[in-house]
Nucleic acid binder design. Structure first.
Length: 277
DNA sequence: GGGTGATGCTGAG
DNA sequence: TCAGCCTCACCCC
């Protein structure tokens, strides 16, 4: 489930259980064997998450750059360590824990300068503090594409995925087809604040939960069942938790997004609202 | 047991 | 714009 909060949690856990140690590295799958040898036995100094990217910084060795893509996983085990499956791209092991990298889109060694280039191409990451707001607002002004599409642009805001884009626009009450540069200042600022708050909640809970407890008659977000945590994502045809209107779905940039036609008004002509699929 | 979709991205055309 | 790729959980038979 890799949106930004997931990567942030992985980095935190790996900083806690792997960093500071001389780690053993290997590649059961074989595709990373030669590179793994270059970091095997090196001291892992720190793990940084930026957007959906992970950077592992070693003493006297290249930087390990990981991107999980759609299906990648990087679970960590401190006790009851299962054996790695043959598909495991990379095993990182300290005396305290072992982590298995499975199905990543990117797993490569780079130098520090290349890492800086990757980060420079990303927009501000809401999990790295509210100060990214100015860059986010500036980025919005330069984009004419629909806000629903722009939110997946990692160069505008880093770490947002398909769940957060639908949920954040619902919370902000913004129509997904509104051109990004037509979002007024207040709404744009609010969207940034929502991204910061909701991604932090994702880190806290370990999953995305945007629903306000009062909207489903619960006492706290922690009490919400799995099917109560989101307002619109994957809920087409179901009643909006706030107004009861059927949740709609449209395809933007080859990916589906969900929204409430009543809670997210936008003055968009009806002809533009037909699902593009 | 087979088919499919998934919270992502790239590269060919 | 769309096929392809990475892996696995889940659904249906």
């Amino acid at each position: 489930m890799p949106e930004g909060h997931t990567l942030y949690r992985i980095a935190s856990r790996h900083n806690e259980l792997l960093a500071g140690s001389y780690v053993r590295a290997s590649s059961p799958q074989g595709r990373f064997s030669e590179d793994a040898a270059l970091i095997d036995g090196r001291r892992l100094d720190a793990v940084d998450a930026y957007g959906k990217h992970l950077f592992y910084r070693f003493d006297a060795a290249p930087v390990l750059h990981v991107h999980l893509g759609l299906v990648g996983k990087f679970p960590t085990f401190s006790e009851d360590r299962p054996a790695p499956s043959p598909a495991t791209r990379l095993v990182l092991e300290s005396d305290r824990a072992v982590a298995y990298l499975i199905g990543p889109m990117t797993c490569r060694l780079i130098d520090t300068a290349e890492g800086e280039i990757v980060i420079a191409e990303l927009g501000p990451d809401p999990l790295r503090g509210r100060r990214g707001r100015v860059a986010f607002l500036g980025g919005l002004e330069r984009r004419t594409k629909p806000i629903g599409e722009a939110l997946l642009d990692q160069g505008l805001i880093a770490g947002i995925g398909n769940v957060f884009r639908s949920e954040l626009l619902f919370l902000a009450g913004v129509h997904p087809l509104l051109p990004a540069n037509r979002l007024d200042g207040d709404n744009a600022s609010r969207l940034w604040d929502l991204a910061v708050d909701e991604m932090r909640n994702g880190v806290r809970f370990g999953h995305i939960v945007t629903v306000r407890p009062r909207d489903v008659g619960a006492r706290s977000r922690a009490d919400l069942d799995r099917d109560e945590r989101l307002y619109v994502y994957h809920r087409e045809g179901l009643p909006c938790r706030r107004c009861g209107t059927a949740i709609a779905v449209l395809t933007m940039g080859s990916r589906r997004m969900w929204w409430c036609p009543v809670c997210q008004p936008g003055g968009i002509p009806a002809s533009a609202l037909a699902p593009r699929s």
